[in-house]
Write a protein that binds this DNA or RNA. Structure first.
Lengths: 120, 120
DNA sequence: ATTATTGTATTAATAACTTAATACAAAGAT
DNA sequence: ATCTTTGTATTAAGTTATTAATACAATAAT
């Protein structure tokens, strides 16, 4: 695993995204054990607390859980991962339509623009 | 004009949005003169520099221009306002599709989800 | 029982962002 | 010519966000 960061956004956010991607894409399968905080932090060359922050966020989102001393695991609930994926997707879509309304496009016009841009 | 602010985002951003909306919606028509920095700042009860920052952003976006001592004006170019609107819309749409790909949806799947959510 | 490994909490330091205070400069109005 | 109004630049203060340093706590392994 190679980690890379932009210079203009918080590192913990980018860590979160990259780990999230690993989970959603199945590279960290449901139920599997994650490397320890310190290990991940060392891999990514960040302070353990920074990694911890990313993991805590993922925990808040329900994608991982920690067992006090045995480590941290990806949720076993595959449906939950799928739901998370769908929910994020749905949110993003709804946010778009809301933004577009702010700009003065109603739903139909937005739809039209989408078709025009993606040619579908 | 009444101004109102959330407490969790920079004021200058919210000023920008509100003025942008006034322009896009035609309440500040193309070519019209905006109130002075100090006037706007006073109306909105913010420091003039904060208002200035919002206006500078709008200027960078090309929606307004300033004439050193006579004041600041909305661009006369209506097409430009429309283009700005379209461009922002287009950007938002493209960003969505990109985000969705990150989540693991290809363009077709995203399209499908959009239809499902909006029922169109 | 001791040690090593795990996650966690607390605090401090640093960095970035936001807002405010103030002074300057240009041009029109009187 | 002087004053007023305009935008602008610079600097400082305040606030929030981010990262780091360090210590603690729990449990499994030996």
């Amino acid at each position: 695993m190679t980690w890379h960061f932009d210079n203009d956004r918080p590192i913990y956010t980018q860590l979160l995204e990259q780990i999230l991607f690993l989970i959603i894409s199945g590279q960290y399968p449901p139920g599997s054990k994650l490397p320890s905080v310190r290990e991940l932090a060392s891999e990514a060359s960040v302070n353990p607390n920074t990694m911890q922050r990313a993991l805590t966020e993922l925990e808040r989102m329900g994608l991982v859980y920690s067992q006090r001393t045995s480590g941290r695991f990806v949720t076993e609930d595959e449906a939950m991962i799928q739901r998370m994926k769908d929910s994020m997707g749905k949110d993003k879509i709804l946010a778009l339509f809301k933004d577009m309304e702010q700009l003065g496009y109603d739903a139909d016009q937005t739809m039209e623009l989408i078709h025009k841009i993606t040619r579908r």
